[in-house]
Design a protein around this nucleic acid. Sequence first.
RNA 1: GGAAAGGUGGCUGAGUCCGGUCUAAGGCGCACGACUGGAAAUCGUGUGACGGCUAACCCCGUCCGAGGGUUCGAAUCCCUCCCUUUCCGCCA
Length: 418
Amino acid sequence: MLDIRRIINEKEVFLQAMANRNANLDFDKLSFLDENRRKLLGESETLKARRNAVAAERPKLLKQGQDVSSLKEEMKAVGDRIKAMDDELRNTEEELQGMLLAIPNIPDSSVPVGNDENDNAIIRTVGEPRKFDFEPKPHWEIGEEQGMLDFTRAAKVTGARFTFCRGLGARLERSVFNFMMDTHAKNGYTEIFPPFMVNRASMTGTGQLPKFEDDAFKVVNTDYFLIPTAEVPVTNMYSNEIIEELPQSFCAYSACFRAEAGSAGRDTRGLIRQHQFNKVELVKFTRPEESFEHLELMTKDAERILQLLELPYRVSLLCTGDMGFASAKTYDIEVWMPSYNRYVETSSCSNICDYQSRRLGIRYRPEQGAKPQFAHTLNGSGLAVGRTVAAILENFQTAEGNVNIPKALHPYMGMSGW
RNA sequence: GGAAAGGUGGCUGAGUCCGGUCUAAGGCGCACGACUGGAAAUCGUGUGACGGCUAACCCCGUCCGAGGGUUCGAAUCCCUCCCUUUCCGCCA
């Protein structure tokens, strides 16, 4: 959520940003609602001040034996007007709030302006895609042939876009996220194991609601949602708090659940687009002046995983039209996927600035005794586990149809003696 | 799921029965000052968040778990919900 005052005061910047994002909105209505809100608030508060003054005087007047029945009449009327005014005020505030929640974040000035992924900037490419001297197989074929992945039975037991990992496949999945968590923990991130369900307020706070309710799984008979990413519970940890010390860095493993509404027919085979997948998420809370620096650090921390796993990848800076709703600046890390013959997103690292913290009331004190300010929040995958497993299966496959395991994973696979 | 007791400022804790100097006591902590060679102790002063109006101060409003209601007036009375603790039931 953006600051309404900033929207009004920096109208030109704001409108340009929205245009760059291909977002439409009614600025005049926004401006009217804001003015109307303050007008109603002022009138209501004047009446309340009168009510408070009379309420304080009344006992004294009574003690002096004065007649207060006319005051009582007046106050009855004042009370009714306050009620009516507050109703109108609430409606105005709800309408304003509704509009603000539907407005995406303003892209940082370093973000390239563009419409879609074709306008993203490639920042760096690391590692060379392997040249195969045989026809490489896609990971779902390797996984099924090796008895590591079973899509057919998962479809029977649950439905499309679910997978059984089995035997070494299950072991590999577990090894990969343990390796990720260990690596991040070693690099200063505090481990979190979060709830996999959150309430509506948390989903709204991080920006998944109200706009993207169709993408979420709702648990029946409750107001809980399955988390689409650990970003939601971990960022919400500090909602309505004043954080004592910044920065704070967390890594969290979780299963993630996404309805994938609107992606019917895309990536239907394999591990790339599932309703349930594992992910290790990085979340940071920082001072505003340090957040962009931390975005670079976080991106490198995520990249480190791919380097240690010896997987070729590239990093791109998303353009204004391709960025997520809440983000001010996003780097995507894409791993080389031989079966796709292209790079596939395996991490998205974003600086949200104060967009979430304003919604959530996440604050800090610049100095002891100073007024609380909104902290900045960042999040990034570190990394998506299923896609990483897919990349390992494809990039490390042998001509015989087997798969080698990257050295970094040997201790986790029970191969420490190799 | 059932029963009971609770939820008050950064923490602790009084006030709730019986509505009105509650403008939330007292204590702890914290900040500043005095005292001191310096410190501890002691003494004094101050001590929240959010919003409105402001150049700023002042001032005003809101906040006693959340949301409604009663009333001229609600921390206090009524209703609904959430959470915590204990006991029971169930259970990995």
